[in-house]
Design a binder for these strands. Sequence first.
DNA 1: GTCGGTGCAAACTATTTGCAATCGA
DNA 2: TCGATTGCAAATAGTTTGCACCGAC
Lengths: 166, 166
Amino acid sequence: MKVIQSINLLQNNIFYYIFTTMDESTAKAKELFRDFLNRKDLKKTKERDIILEAVFDTHDHFDAEELLILFRQKKIPVSRATIYRTLDLLVECRLVKKISFGEAHFRYEHIFGHEHHDHLICNQCGQIIEFYNKDLEELQKKICRQYDFKEQDHSLRIFGLCKSCQ
Amino acid sequence: MKVIQSINLLQNNIFYYIFTTMDESTAKAKELFRDFLNRKDLKKTKERDIILEAVFDTHDHFDAEELLILFRQKKIPVSRATIYRTLDLLVECRLVKKISFGEAHFRYEHIFGHEHHDHLICNQCGQIIEFYNKDLEELQKKICRQYDFKEQDHSLRIFGLCKSCQ
DNA sequence: GTCGGTGCAAACTATTTGCAATCGA
DNA sequence: TCGATTGCAAATAGTTTGCACCGAC
């Protein structure tokens, strides 16, 4: 199911009409984000809306700069500072995950509508392969019990060479 | 077995004599580092020696700034730039591992004389618990085979609450 | 109207780099 | 000797922050 949706931006007396199709999980994420903002007495702004949509449109591990470039290309006026501030909020309400792939900066991925997964990272071409393994999850739970540790999140990254780079 | 060892530093016409005890694994690491430097036609300098020792003295996950502070306290003249440059070399020759615990900077740990291990990280007090699980290693190998992926390294971090913070 | 939000530029943190002086082989 | 290494300070990359203005409720 797709939902047709429009955003109106008024800037320098020019209206920007942006029509996008929004899938169900984006719609659900929006709802959750709205609830989160309400709970925290924060305001719903068009910038936060735009960023959430861009994040859920990207089925990839993006960084803050990439979002900024995307917005500039599309002539959508959202500043770098707002991107960082909004990503923090999205991480706080657990719609987005902040991850480090061993680079000098952070990447993000949306997690709503996605199963938890881990990553295989190719040291040669940089390709990132997502995988999920049930046994692995079980084993980690077992390890946490051993150490009396209450797990909240985890991240397994396997670095090496992908099939085509070997 | 401990080895008594001395380093002489000549700086501003003052000799600094630093006597340290060096355990076997540090001695072995030094040897490996020396070989690495030889292979690469790089020079053995007192700074590189000092940094290697400090790294192997620390049984913890330190960062570059902590090393610098340590050297300043002990009045050992080694610059920040040299610390970063030498850590890169130690990572390259696989005596040291560069890890990210989700902070804005990197940490390092020496790996020689240590079994591979993974980390439980307490979100409350910041404590880092190291663990090793054989089944986990096996399972990861199996996953790599599934994806035709040649593993070179991996890192599993489980974030949550340690026993005393729950 | 009242705060909270935004954009901008400046600040800040971690890290890297250019360069002249110094040092190791 | 001669190129590699060092320390310094400046540059860079990523991110955060102060502040004046703007906008959601």
